[in-house]
């Protein structure tokens, strides 16, 4: 691997490259160092101008963290708990059902008629308009009625010899991944309206555990399916074929053989999904307001609430950042085995 690009260079330019990388590394690390240091400063230590070294430039204090824990600047403890609960469960559910779907797309053959897809879309849209405008249902009732009807009609239509192209596994995969391309504001806002209408039917989804988790599961699925497909494709099929000769049912092959063999991939996917949910801002902004508020919302609110109290803001930012720093360390270990290599092909 040494032949690429640098061996032709003389010694001095090798050094130049090393200095360049080192410079970028410093740019990357310095802001992080700055938050850590600032979080241990006293208010006068911050206002008095930039200081850099603890014990030499300034005397460190734990006061910002004590304030944080006592809830002086918002209920950090509960918000941290919210983020953890929602993050872990959304990542676990998304990894589980996403991995199942990815496995199905790798090992089983699917045929979906484009016609059936159109039937679904037209019936859902038309049924919704019809129920809402003609029969006088509310908007959410109309949607909830149109959904199963359109779905059943589409499944039936898929059996009929409709004209038009037949879509295979690759197309289904593309459909999954293309969900990620949508600007989230399109769905976030609509989801907010939909949730509040369902709330009027007596089932609260806004600012609830179920509503938030469900939304995060849906938006993590594209990544999960995309990543897991590559891991499953890398598994030699002979093992599964041997099990099939012994008449082991497919679900036991999946749970007993495939899942243990791709544990590394599942773990990495879980962590990437967790990071995504943990850091997510837009959906949490729309879908929560008090009880199930997550960390990014509380952290974002810090500077508008009290102005530039950098010592406290640093401590708050640190609470949101540190769990992900730990994960970065874990992930980079896995990365060494060329883990994400398959994902970009």
């Amino acid at each position: 691997m040494s032949g690429q690009g640098l061996t032709g260079l003389p010694q001095w330019s090798r050094r130049l490259v090393a200095v360049g990388v080192l410079a970028w590394c410093l740019i990357t690390v310095f802001p992080l160092y700055w938050v850590v240091v600032t979080a241990f400063k006293t208010p006068p230590g911050v206002v008095g101008g930039p200081t850099y070294l603890p014990f030499i430039d300034f005397t460190p204090t734990l006061q910002p963290f004590i304030d944080l824990y006592q809830g002086i600047r918002g209920e950090f403890f509960r918000t941290f708990l919210n983020s953890t609960i929602v993050g872990l469960s959304a990542a676990a559910i998304a990894t589980a059902i996403g991995a199942m779907a990815a496995y199905a797309l790798v090992r089983f053959e699917f045929k979906v008629r484009l016609g059936a897809g159109l039937v679904f879309f037209l019936l859902a849209l038309g049924g919704y308009l019809l129920f809402n405008a003609t029969f006088g249902f509310t908007r959410s009732q109309a949607l909830l009625l149109a959904f199963p009807i359109a779905l059943i009609a589409a499944v039936v239509a898929n059996r009929l010899p409709l004209p038009g192209p037949i879509l295979g596994n690759e197309d289904i995969l593309f459909w999954f991944v293309s969900q990620r391309m949508f600007p989230p504001i399109v769905t976030a806002f609509a989801l907010y309206l939909l949730y509040s209408e369902i709330g009027r039917l007596g089932f609260q989804l806004i600012d609830s555990y179920v509503g938030l988790t469900l939304c995060y599961v849906a938006f993590s699925l594209p990544i999960v399916v995309w990543l897991m497909r590559d891991f499953f494709e890398a598994i030699p099929i002979e093992v599964e074929e041997a099990a099939m000769v012994d008449n082991v049912p497919s679900w036991r092959i999946f749970i007993g053989i495939v899942v243990p063999m791709s544990m590394n991939g599942l773990l990495a996917t879980f962590m990437i999904t967790l990071a995504f949910v943990w850091n997510e801002f837009l959906f949490a902004l729309f879908l929560t307001n008090s009880r199930w508020q997550t960390l990014p919302i509380l952290v974002a609110g810090q500077n508008s609430q009290r102005g530039d109290e950098w010592w406290a803001i640093s401590a708050a930012a640190l609470v949101a950042i540190v769990p992900m720093m730990i994960m970065a360390g874990l992930l980079s270990r896995m990365m060494r085995s060329g883990l994400l290599l398959g994902a970009i092909k």
Binding site: F176, A218, L221
Partner: peptide
């Protein structure tokens, strides 16, 4: 295979396609 793929399809349909139609 349907058991494997439907949970994911249903969640995505319900949470992202439906709001799309609505909006």
């Amino acid at each position: 295979k349907h058991v494997f793929i439907w949970p994911a399809v249903l969640v995505v349909l319900a949470i992202s396609i439906f709001p799309l139609i609505y909006s």
